[in-house]
């Protein structure tokens, strides 16, 4: 160890690489499922809300309550209380696989709310014009609403991805692995500040990369 304080030789780069892979896997898979579940949920919230195409106050209130309830649970708690469900779904409650169901359950309601808000931004006139042209509900959603909202949906996906990165850091609680877990176990609990520095830098780079990619996609998709 030199006098400035950092001894980079304590870092096991293979571990770092493994952790990075775990983080990327958790992020990729859970983001995929979050979109698959959250997008329809968001569309449904939008359609059921007052003055929209399927306006239904009781159904909207119920769905809205469920979404709020899931969002109000801290992620760490969600990780633990979902263990029985996780075991049913993926056969294990630990490791990368065990982390994915709680990640999705944590992020999908969040993403759904963002989708709902984004769809609300679409000019009502476009929905009306589509109706006047004889579009079915499915056509309105898939050919008018979602494509019109694409820039906003991409921005929502970016925000969700970044949120998922910070959620993955907590998956260490159930042995989920990943960069955040590494930072806590080695960097914090074993006082290996070097590991902390490297993992934080890696997370920083990942978030920057996600945000830049997201911004670039939004810009490309924007026609306004």
């Amino acid at each position: 160890m030199n006098e400035i304080g950092f001894d980079w030789s304590v870092i096991d780069w293979a571990d770092i690489w493994l952790a990075t892979q775990d983080t990327l896997t958790m992020l990729g898979v859970s983001l995929g499922f979050t979109i698959i579940l959250g997008l329809p949920l968001g569309v449904l919230l939008y359609l059921l809300s007052p003055r929209q195409l399927m306006a239904n106050k009781p159904a909207y209130s119920l769905l809205s309550f469920v979404v709020n309830a899931l969002r109000s649970l801290p992620f760490v708690i969600l990780l633990i209380i979902l263990i029985p469900v996780t075991v049913k779904l993926v056969g294990t409650s630990i490791g990368v696989a065990g982390a994915i169901p709680p990640l999705v359950v944590g992020a999908a309601p969040f993403f759904a709310r963002l989708v709902e808000a984004t769809l609300r931004e679409v000019d009502r006139g476009i929905v009306e014009a589509s109706q006047a042209m004889g579009a079915t509900l499915w056509q309105i959603v898939t050919r008018a609403l979602l494509p019109e909202a694409l820039p906003g949906l991409l921005a929502a996906t970016t925000v969700t991805a970044v949120t998922l990165v910070s959620y993955t850091a907590m998956s260490g609680v159930i042995g989920g692995g990943g960069l955040g877990d590494l930072a806590i176990r080695f960097g914090y609990q074993r006082f290996q500040t070097e590991v902390m520095v490297v993992t934080v830098l890696a997370l920083l780079a990942l978030v920057q990369l996600l945000q830049m990619t997201g911004d670039w996609l939004v810009k490309r998709a924007t026609r306004k």
């Binding site: 000019d123 006139g125 476009i126 009306e128 014009a129 109706q131 004889g134 494509p147 019109e148």
Partner: peptide, 22 residues
């Protein structure tokens, strides 16, 4: 039936209501 009818009735709007992504 309503959809069939609407396809035979064109509508033009004050604020155009065009699809921005197209």
């Amino acid at each position: 039936g309503l959809r069939v009818l609407r396809r035979q009735v064109g509508m033009v709007f004050q604020h155009f209501n065009l699809l921005n992504h197209r």
